[in-house]
């Protein structure tokens, strides 16, 4: 623990003040999902669970569980694809004598910085050509490809922080390169794996653009698109509290994951482990 040579109190006070409007808005977001307020009033006058009816009554907004399922599939696929490919690819880039390694590294950086939106039309044509348009597989492949540069780059940082001697010692002890990777190196980068796994899950869960454009079919709707469609139709008597309830439903897993993994998520920005 570092010793502080200045008081943190003014800083905390300032931050509280600045984030107060946000807090108020979040407060009402939660509050409004379980209450009703008279028209034109700010404060609710009665408690109700009516806005949560969408959970089991498909007549309200359609099948929210199917959308949640789709989102879950997308998020989990992201996690699996990004984790499995990043751990192996990053190791190869960090430790093996690959031909064109520098070019490959540069390519990853460029891809990482490239705005994905500009690729959309091209991607659309490719998917259409291969018959993967309007399918979950297509969305997963495209989203995965766009996320991989980030994952590989992050994992490379973690691998780079593992001392060479551990690898040399493992090889001297008679272990194959693969055994060394699996039993000696992988455990050293575990913090990175955890963080990257959560991160890619959250990224998949929050993705809106790609499923919206590449898989517009109703049975492929993910939660983000589902939520958007609630306000897309210009029907009369728009139910704001219902919209907020679905929003909270959509956000809950994110908040939960973040609470559980917040310390380990910060690892990604630390760039590696020590010791």
């Amino acid at each position: 623990m570092m010793t502080r040579n200045f008081s943190t109190l003014p800083l905390v006070a300032l931050l509280t003040l600045v984030s107060l409007p946000l807090m108020v808005m979040y407060g009402f977001l939660i509050l409004d999902t379980v209450t009703d307020a008279p028209p034109g009033e700010l404060w609710p006058d009665r408690f109700t669970l009516e806005h949560w009816r969408f959970l089991f009554d498909t007549s309200v907004v359609g099948n929210v569980w199917q959308a949640a399922g789709n989102s879950l599939i997308l998020a989990l696929s992201m996690m699996v694809i990004v984790l499995s490919l990043s751990t192996t690819a990053a190791y190869a880039i960090s430790r093996l004598h690959l031909p064109y390694r520098r070019l490959f590294l540069g390519g990853i950086l460029v891809m990482h910085a490239f705005p994905a939106v500009t690729l959309l039309i091209g991607v659309f044509f490719v998917l259409n050509f291969t018959g993967l348009y309007n399918s979950m597989i297509g969305v997963i492949l495209v989203k995965g490809a766009l996320m991989l540069p980030f994952g590989i780059w992050i994992m490379k940082g973690f691998y780079d922080a593992v001392p060479w001697e551990i690898e040399m010692a493992g090889v001297q002890d008679g272990a194959s390169r693969f055994t060394v990777w699996r039993r000696l190196i992988l455990p050293q980068v575990k913090p990175g794996l955890v963080a990257l796994g959560v991160f890619s899950f959250l990224d998949g869960w929050g993705e809106y653009l790609l499923p919206r454009i590449l898989a517009p079919g109703s049975e492929m709707t993910v939660l983000s698109v589902f939520l958007n469609e609630l306000i897309a139709g210009d029907q009369l008597g728009f139910d704001f509290n219902l919209f907020k309830s679905v929003g909270v439903f959509y956000t809950l897993p994110v908040v939960l994951l973040f609470i559980i993994f917040q310390d380990r998520l910060m690892n990604i920005f630390g760039g590696g482990t020590k010791g």
Partner: peptide
């Protein structure tokens, strides 16, 4: 060949016993 490195290169996630046993459990 057995090698002792300058920084020892012990496997940080393994106990002392597992460290010593490692060369016997591969190969």
């Amino acid at each position: 060949v057995g090698v002792v490195f300058q920084n020892y290169a012990l496997y940080p996630h393994m106990s002392v016993e597992e460290n010593i046993a490692f060369p016997l459990t591969v190969g």
